[in-house]
Design a protein around this nucleic acid. Sequence first.
DNA 1: CGTCCAATTGAAACAAGTCAATCTATGTGG
DNA 2: CCACATAGATTGACTTGTTTCAATTGGACG
Lengths: 221, 221
Amino acid sequence: MRDRSIFAGLSLDDLRALGMEVQDIRVPAASTLYLEGDRARYAYTLRQGAVKLVKTLPNGRAQIVRLLRHGDLFGFEGLREARHRHSAITLTQTDLCQLDLPALEALSQRLPSVHGAITQRWFSALQEAENRIVELGAKKAEERLATFLCQWCSAYPQGGAVPFPLTRQELGEFLGLSTEHVSRLMAEFKRQGLLSERKGTLDIPDSRRLLQHACTSGACA
Amino acid sequence: MRDRSIFAGLSLDDLRALGMEVQDIRVPAASTLYLEGDRARYAYTLRQGAVKLVKTLPNGRAQIVRLLRHGDLFGFEGLREARHRHSAITLTQTDLCQLDLPALEALSQRLPSVHGAITQRWFSALQEAENRIVELGAKKAEERLATFLCQWCSAYPQGGAVPFPLTRQELGEFLGLSTEHVSRLMAEFKRQGLLSERKGTLDIPDSRRLLQHACTSGACA
DNA sequence: CGTCCAATTGAAACAAGTCAATCTATGTGG
DNA sequence: CCACATAGATTGACTTGTTTCAATTGGACG
């Protein structure tokens, strides 16, 4: 797993020798790792579990900006800004690698490979964010949900029932919909046999069929 | 202007000496600089005018992903990917600086300051994209429009009437709304004396008052 | 003066949100 | 083992927000 991390090629010992504090931690579900506006001390790589990054409007409405899973990084905005731009909250029990930001900064300046890996992640995050802008701006509720569910499951190549730790409310906060509306859409998908759920897992028997609801009126990607 | 560009500190002659092709071009309004999926040859810096970056869904719906003005860069995804991720279309007559991507790539590897400047722009773009996700996901039409108009005008510090080259349709494609709905909201804002328009310019006499429509039910940023 | 395109307006259809009640699973303490 | 409490999910009825379609207006320009 450290292969596909930003430290590809470096062992834990290498990192320690370079002055990099690396702390492996396990936290329970619903833990707050940091809050929007907190002074940024650590960045994280996610080894196991799921995390949501949330922004909250002054009036209290919350928007999940990104969902993170195995292999994802977060908190790296602390390299450029003093404070975190969003809150990070675990959705499940989660294994993390906690990286001291000042040390990471120093390391990134010394090792081009590390710097490049971080830059690449920013680039990918930008790409993903732009795709989400399209989802939110140009698609209807049913299409957003169908697209999202298929994408979520496609991260588990083996198929079959996959872990699905999101509540209806969290789905709503991610997709820009009300809890109730999400619930209704999920029920409708189930009624049509497009998916089934069982306590924390989701099964999409035929994702091509579900994808037909992802971009109505016209053929789809 | 070259100060705040990615080539801060380098003169045009410096650039040419380093093998960097720099082409200053002027194009009319509604010019397509490149299309989504085109092989990426050039990146651009925008000296004067306005450009929209658009993504189109298979069914034809379009979403403006980003709006660019003086000093903004675009097309730089060509450094990481072979093809452009969106279409770039001018909204006005526009002065651009066209950069040959392979040469830029080489230059960026040689000069850390250039590389760092590009990285910084990606980081800012990510930040902006995440803010837009919140706008689209958590706000209602009126709030989105009010927020956007204020932000647009705040880029012109002098106040008063500012250039505003967007059609109602483009506003809709940016904010995820129908043309007609944008039109109605604009009319309503005008009726309330919150703004006025005159052939390509926009005037917001009191942006604080307009911002009260930007995040209803609760105090706002 | 007629043409064209954008903007506006109205009426009706539709999508999505809100509020309230119910249901279900899960866990708790008696 | 059984009430009971709790939190999330579901459902229904209703309201509000937004789109759609169609018609009209208005301005810019040849």
